[in-house]
Amino acid sequence: MIAVLESRLIPAGSPATLRTLKSFALALFLLIATIGFAADEPKLAHVYVTFEGSSAATIVPGRPTAVDLHFKVKDGFHVNSNKPKSELLIPTVLKLDLPTDLAAGGIVYPVGKDVSFPFDPSEKLNVYTGDFTVKAKLAAAHAASAGNFTVHGSLRYQACSDNACYPPRDAPVQFDVHVSSAASRAHRGNAQSPHIK
């Protein structure tokens, strides 16, 4: 439909054609970007935990490697640890969507801090505040392709301030890992072998 309209409005071979098409593309991009941004949820004001990046990770196939994933809790807020003290409390949980060449070998959560809050000074909750790091153990199959892989995931958390709590949210997580090539595998394997003198 757009192509038909354009062909009627913009004479073929006109010197203004390219410029007009560029204007059209720019206008369309700006409109879509505006709409997309407005519709995007959650709004920044409702974000209580952010992913701050990961440690550099090179994975040797067949050998699980821990990747440090750094998170930050917004000042004035706390989130339940992975092992909150009550079954009613929602734990912080990391979920990773791994490329087919990679597999998860377990996730290690930090130990939370026991803290009491003004809304109930008699009870201590096990929480994360400020910066915390989750370790994700990743492994590559022996037949895995060498190269860089992007891992996507999310951290599910439920945040509270000193006097209010907020519905559970997901902090998006994205980081890159490098799976070493066959040559470097052999090299690393030899270098670490106890039989080589």
């Binding site: 309209l5 204007s23 369309l28």
Partner: peptide, 13 residues
Amino acid sequence: NALAILVIALVVA
């Protein structure tokens, strides 16, 4: 032309 392009862009958006 510019006005028509803007209208089309709006409709598409």
